[in-house]
Design a protein around this nucleic acid. Structure first.
Lengths: 207, 207
DNA sequence: AAAGATTTTAAACGCTTGTTTAAAACAAAT
DNA sequence: ATTTGTTTTAAACAAGCGTTTAAAATCTTT
């Protein structure tokens, strides 16, 4: 897909591709080496072990994933515009990287009590001040009184799930790949209207 | 969790538990045997191979999963009531079996061109006549003009994703297990209102 | 109680896994 | 050209994998 100049980057690229599509338990070191076009030993020469290589890939993927959700919050838009833009950005990101949500959730489940935490990214999330902004919007009546957890869940669910459940939905409705790609584009507008209508309801002529 | 009378049922129970929590690639035959409290050879004596055992488990899980989505459609309720009841039933089912959506989607992805299809269940889905019913409701203006695929996607996303993304969401908001359980209960009502408001909008005094 | 059929086990099979070793190929420097 | 250090490889390691074998244990039937 890309250039992959140095050997180290070649390995990282191959590992990312293989880990994303098969997960940690679903692939072997030799498979990654083959994808990178080299010997198994060379992979371990650069990254010591399969697990160490995985941790590096996981961190960069997780970072990209969280960043795609957060960068909108740093803009100067109204809250409603922010939500709208966030949905656009999420669909844009997930169209390019549809395996990421499944990958992240699976590996978090596989490695519960271990090193796959998200402390840094979590702090960045709080620092955007979007929670304070939302609380204000709710006080002023601009936005419906929905707690921040459910707000997060609504947006994540309606953005991520269509990409995660692609195979099932395609089989269920007998759709081709091209048809589903089109559906995604249409679906984005539908859920955007649904969510915005819910969060920012049109006042019905009182006051 | 249950009685598990015969040896065959003991194996099935153990296999279901292990497969659901770790997936096919994430567990070993010996792990299943140990969970069932017996030798590895005995598992293969009853089920020939790990893959054969998996296929049996997958089929029953898939059946339960699809059934939970479909049984509502056989009732005599209005379409709006059906959607409402469907959401209730889905949350009820997923509270009891939260790993099933992730399991099904993962194994479908692992075994793309193979025997994990859903032909039977798919036919049952069409036979409920819910698609015809929805088309009628749209013609009469009772329901908003949303294609059936997006309707499916909206309901599945808002029901399944909160259970699939539990670990991530809990970490993101620093919630305990008990707090998240409460959140789920609250969230069900929120997405129910959001979805019903969208699908069956209140007419604004015209006609 | 003995015979036969069924269920369960311990042990091994060949193969693949993640990882390491030691030698080869290559590059840089003297 | 030889030495030095780095990169790459082929080959091996023990451990674990799915699966099979053959014998032990248990149950059925007589």
């Amino acid at each position: 897909m890309c250039k992959a100049s140095t050997t180290e980057e070649k390995i990282k690229e191959a590992a990312k591709s293989v880990f994303l599509s098969k997960g940690f338990s679903g692939c072997t070191s030799r498979e990654i080496a083959k994808e990178a076009g080299m010997n198994v030993a060379l992979v371990n020469y650069y990254f010591r072990s399969k697990n160490q290589l995985f941790l590096i890939i996981y961190q960069t993927v997780m970072h990209d994933f969280m960043l795609s959700m957060m960068e909108v919050f740093s803009t100067e838009l109204s809250l409603k515009e922010k939500v709208s833009l966030l949905i656009d950005r999420e669909y844009e990101f997930l169209t390019k990287h549809p395996e990421i949500p499944t990958f992240v959730l699976n590996e978090m489940a596989r490695n519960k009590d271990a090193e796959l935490q998200i402390h840094e990214t979590l702090n960045n999330f709080a620092q955007t001040g979007v929670f304070v902004e939302a609380a204000k919007a709710q006080m002023s009546g601009e936005m419906r009184q929905v707690d921040m957890v459910s707000l997060t869940m609504i947006i994540m669910a309606n953005c991520q799930h269509p990409f995660m459940a692609r195979l099932l939905t395609q089989q269920l409705h007998g759709m081709t790949d091209a048809q589903y790609d089109m559906q995604i584009i249409k679906h984005k507008e539908i859920i955007k209207e649904m969510i915005l209508n819910y969060l920012f309801p049109k006042k019905s002529t009182n006051e």
